[in-house]
Write a protein that binds this DNA or RNA. Structure first.
Lengths: 283, 283
DNA sequence: AAGAAAAATGTAATTTTTTGACATTTTTAA
DNA sequence: TTAAAAATGTCAAAAAATTACATTTTTCTT
């Protein structure tokens, strides 16, 4: 946790002298990290051991350790912490909190990704005869997005929102088809069933879900995403974003694998859209 | 500048022993910042002054100063820069680049948001008789997602992918209805027309789009999002993510405005989903 | 309000850590 | 091969941080 925030929060707990130290540090943290304990003690007008005790109260091992923590806090301007929205927050606060915690979640998600599996899945996708993307609820829009993306690649790609359509589609799967199933929890019954159906019909099933979930068990490959608990709003938030970003990664891997010529193709697809748009005046 | 990079770059300049120190630090920077010069010297199998000289070669004042720099470098992992994917990147590289540039874009987008407009739009939404979300292409899935989110609020909410349905829906708009139009460029002709139709029928039109685009001109309120140019892959990437996050912000503002009781409602909605899921074993 | 107990703070000594001076070894180049 | 230069290590001095303990301040009880 950011040590500057911690100092602010614990202000009430500090003793009088410790508070003097806190003031000096908060008002000038950049100076603090370059001072020795003696200098800081003089600046705060307290004794050296008091500064040391202050550091320990913040759960650091001592002054040098404290400086390290402080340096780290200062390094990331606003550190991407998963701050929860609360009741009293105004628009400014909740906007920032949502953005920041989304970024924080992406960071965590990124670290949880196994690039070897990404690589293998990209392999699979490039060789697939047909790619299907299915998800339910909040993950439906992620599947929808994946459709949009892979459609540009001129690959047979399928997406349905309707469970029955999804099932039927999987019934008709065959060897060489890849089915990508998206679910944050990996506990949605009907999606787990879809996975089973697809596998019975020789499709390769890729799950974008959490590790060791029932869905993960049924998949040939699992791209597990660890995303910190969504904020308190009882809605999926960060999980979706992480899934989407992973889709971007797969799409990128796909185009890289296909090489340069293929990318020119993509440019053409993009240019085709031009007719449907108002021209941008060249400034 | 990031000191880890600096170490990597200067590797050629280092002497043999200094390189040993560099290896140890690069391979385990987290350990390094918590070690004394003596420990690090032993780990690198060199003498203490050698470590000290190593630090000075990197333009730090000495070992403690070096540790500070190192701590700061580690704090912001790799700062979120918009690094472009290129041809030779392996899975590891492109995965990280995509995630990082997504985070970087979110940061930029966040700063470009006008919270006053967010606040006003939240106002509008809470008082709306009916809310519609429309987008085309990549933005369609964003609208889809918004549907999913606002549907939970037990508000009349509408979403269509089909242009004709969108038009018809807007024809039937009336005073008190809010139409949210999503488009990165704001230059999609049919969406601009939708905006005009909606306004002719007294709906309030909110645009999530780029400032001063043709679409923005036609909107009652514009939530403009400035998103750095998407990476070179000719697909919308970061723009979508920013739009989605903005939707999260609006949804959050909405629930906050509605107060505590309302949030309990949301919890109930979430709990309702339980029947469709496999239980999580309590570990 | 007085006095004892507890908490906070400071002093001084000790320990740890870092740095500097100089000797020795290794490398480089003529 | 040898002399100069560069690199590295040894050891001692200096600086910094921490500990133990004494003193002061605060708090609580009677």
């Amino acid at each position: 946790m950011n040590i500057l925030e911690k100092i602010t929060q614990n202000k009430a707990v500090f003793s009088k002298s410790e508070r003097k130290v806190a003031e000096v540090i908060l008002s000038n943290p950049q100076t603090a990290i370059h001072s020795s304990i003696a200098t800081l003690a003089k600046m705060s007008d307290v004794s050296e051991p008091t500064v040391n005790r202050f550091c320990r109260r913040l759960d650091t091992k001592g002054y040098p350790d404290f400086k390290l923590h402080l340096a780290q806090s200062l390094a990331n301007g606003t550190p991407y912490v998963n701050r929860h929205v609360d009741e009293q927050d105004g628009p400014e606060e909740y906007t920032n909190k949502i953005f920041e915690s989304t970024m924080a979640s992406l960071e965590v998600a990124r670290q949880s990704i196994d690039v070897n599996i990404v690589n293998r899945v990209v392999d699979l996708l490039t060789q697939a005869q047909k790619i299907s993307f299915f998800g339910l609820g909040a993950s439906a829009s992620v599947a929808h997005d994946a459709l949009n993306k892979f459609f540009r690649f001129n690959v047979p790609v399928v997406y349905f929102e309707d469970i029955l359509m999804q099932r039927m589609s999987c019934m008709n799967c065959s060897d060489g088809d890849v089915v990508v199933l998206i679910s944050h929890t990996g506990r949605t019954k009907s999606l787990v069933e879809i996975a089973q159906i697809a596998r019975m019909n020789d499709a390769t099933v890729v799950g974008i879900t959490s590790a060791e979930s029932p869905l993960a068990q049924e998949c040939s490959y699992v791209l597990s995403l660890e995303v910190p608990e969504d904020t308190d709003m009882y809605m999926p938030m960060a999980s979706r974003i992480a899934q989407l970003t992973l889709i971007d990664v797969l799409a990128t891997g796909f185009t890289l694998r296909r090489g340069n010529k293929f990318r020119e193709n993509l440019k053409r697809v993009k240019d085709t859209l031009r007719g449907s748009r108002y021209e941008k005046r060249n400034e």
